[in-house]
Simulated assay, not measured.
Amino acid sequence: MPRNQPRLILVHEPEKACFDRLVADGYPAERATEISSYLAQSTDLAPEFEVLAAACEARGLAFASVELDEAAGVLARADRDATLVWTLTDGIAYFRGGAAPALARLNGLKTIGADDSLFALCQDKFRSGAVLGALGLPAPQAGLARNREWLVEPPASEAGWFVKPNRLGAKIGIWPDSRVADLGHALELSRRVFAHYRDDVVVQPYVAGRNVRASFLGLKPETGVEALGIAFVESGGDFQTMADSLALYGDTGGIAKAAGTYAEPVLEPVTASQPAADAIIRRIAGGLMTGLGLRDVFSVDLRVEADDTVHLIEFEVCPGLPCFDFRDYCRAQWGLGLADAMAETARTRLRP
């Protein structure tokens, strides 16, 4: 690589590295497979690293994909004036990708995405929900339970409650019975989650509506909420379970494709049927950008009711870039495939 050539470093934690570490820590193989599956974008993007390198080269950039366990040494040697670090996989509990932006900051390197404090916040649903509420954003209030004991009791709810792990990945449910009608069942789910994953559960009032994903990539530094891609995600179910996730992404998703059982959810632009809800979501995203500090690349999960009531479920600082929805967003918003969209975003930061 020529001296001082601008370089994009993509840091990622592989599924297998996470799986091996979890097994060594005493998790059964089945649980370790489920947990490490949340790093599927590392698996799904790896076959395209050469394509991404070529897209970078066409823009005068060098490219390096770096596994998380090698990141400390690589980033310590990087040229701080010519290096951009993009963290592909996050995590503070089961996963460790949240260390990458902190390492980049330690070494004075430029980064794509939010600062490292948000990498920690977004992976703790109870704490992030409290912050979102303090910012006046429409996130459901929540209780917190650990192994059949309330740490914080949830608010009353005539519609029942929704139970999800507090720190495991970013999904909104694990089992089909994650929506509950009584709090005794919620405590039983907290026992099951603790036994399987050693995690607490967030218990929120159930909110009706259709699932929505808002995706964002700031191809240029000044890009704002006008570039959000906001779509209903129709998968045939009220919410996604662990089994649903396993069938879509990573190694298990590849098995589903080979078996002919893989089926992508249907995406439908929210603005086509509920333009008022689309406008509300853009205002919410603007609040996340100005009040929380989201930038460059992120996604937001929401629920939208027929009367345009919007519920903010969670935000992600490391959206699933190789997933069907983000690829669709890059094509629709920027007219680019994923590799070219990533490379062009890096170019505008390194070679303005």
Rank of each mutant, 00 (worst) to 15 (best):
I284S: 05
Y249G: 02
L288R: 14
G291V: 14
M242H: 11
I281L: 11
G218C: 02
Y249W: 11
A247E: 03
S178P: 01
S215W: 06
R191I: 00
Y206W: 14
A258D: 09
G250E: 03
L246S: 05
R191G: 13
L294R: 14
D177T: 07
G218K: 06
G236Y: 00
Y206M: 01
K220P: 01
S235P: 00
K257C: 10
G291N: 09
E222F: 02
T290H: 14
M242A: 12
A227G: 06
R295H: 12
L217I: 02
G287L: 04
R198V: 08
V225I: 08
A170P: 04
K257Y: 03
A227W: 07
D296F: 05
H196G: 13
K257G: 03
S178M: 12
L292Y: 06
G291D: 01
I284D: 04
D238P: 03
D296C: 10
A231Y: 09
A279C: 07
I172K: 06
L219Y: 09
P221C: 10
H196Q: 05
A186F: 12
A243N: 13
Q240L: 15
I172E: 09
A208P: 02
V202A: 03
S178I: 01
G229Q: 09
A259W: 08
V225T: 15
A247L: 03
R198I: 09
R295F: 08
F194H: 13
A195W: 09
V193I: 14
